[in-house]
């Protein structure tokens, strides 16, 4: 049984999508521009792409680079951020470094990295790694910094060593904040993935998109945009489910405490 408010809430995203496609359709028909296919034309092109083996291999290659870049970034950034949050010396060393890297668009580093490492997977994964690292480091750092001193003292009194406290108290306590950083990182991974493939055209989802653009296959271009967008939404939705599970203990639905002394 679902309340009427529940039905509205559930169907809202679907309605928004339909509304957007309708606006697109009408705008396209009104403008009558070759480079602006209608929504229906774009959607029709999707099965052609997904049915094409070569296109699928390209998309999977993109996802693999993204997974590597994201995975390595998370594995490196979380420990670094936590250490920075708990040690003033580590923070003092890395903070200026990160401040310099922070405003640089990571894709702008691609030409240099390409020069050194070629146009292959390593270069692209490395750029994705750079794009993901900063938000994850930042949120891990903030999360670790905010851990209550007395919680660590309680652990120390139980006999936890400083290393154990970092892994068994700081990490779980900072997890909600860390996962917020990872979620931002995931979206950035997708963006950097496409950008990197746009710069080093060789394979991948970005490559299909820009090749189609070169050849004037505008329905394919728009279909790829829809596919990439759907990938982003899908990955984010999966991540959000995992996140919600991991940090159930901190979710606001528990905010009403029981009244009992």
């Amino acid at each position: 049984m679902m309340s009427s408010a529940g039905i509205v809430k559930r169907s809202a995203p679907v309605l928004a999508c339909i509304g957007l496609l309708a606006v697109w359709q009408v705008a396209s028909l009104a403008l009558k521009n070759d480079s602006f296919p209608t929504a229906i034309e774009a959607i029709r092109a999707i099965p052609d792409i997904l049915g094409d083996k070569e296109a699928l291999v390209n998309i999977l290659a993109s996802l693999r680079r993204m997974a590597i870049g994201f995975g390595v970034a998370v594995l490196v950034s979380i420990p670094l951020g936590l250490l920075m949050g708990r040690s003033a010396a580590v923070a003092a060393f890395f903070n200026p470094l990160l401040m310099v890297i922070y405003p640089v668009p990571k894709a702008a580093l691609m030409p240099i990295i390409m020069l050194w490492l070629g146009v292959g997977d390593i270069t692209k994964s490395l750029v994705i790694f750079l794009g993901v690292s900063l938000p994850v480091i930042y949120h891990s750092f903030e999360g670790a910094k905010a851990v209550e001193e007395k919680m660590l003292w309680s652990g120390a009194a139980m006999g936890l060593s400083p290393a154990q406290r970092l892994v068994r108290i700081v990490l779980p306590a900072a997890l909600p904040e860390i996962l917020t950083g990872c979620r931002t990182g995931l979206v950035l991974a997708l963006i950097t993935m496409i950008t990197s493939e746009m710069i080093a055209r060789q394979s991948g989802a970005g490559n299909i998109l820009f090749n189609a653009l070169d050849m004037g296959q505008y329905d394919t271009v728009f279909a790829m945009i829809i596919i990439v967008g759907a990938m982003g939404i899908g990955l984010d939705a999966i991540f959000e489910r995992v996140r919600a599970r991991l940090v159930r203990w901190s979710e606001p639905q528990f905010d009403l405490p029981l009244s009992f002394s």
């Binding site: 528990f254 029981l258 009244s259 002394s261």
Partner: peptide, 9 residues
């Protein structure tokens, strides 16, 4: 979970 408890608890 602690979040579900009152201060006294």
């Amino acid at each position: 979970y602690p979040k579900e408890l009152s201060g006294g608890m």
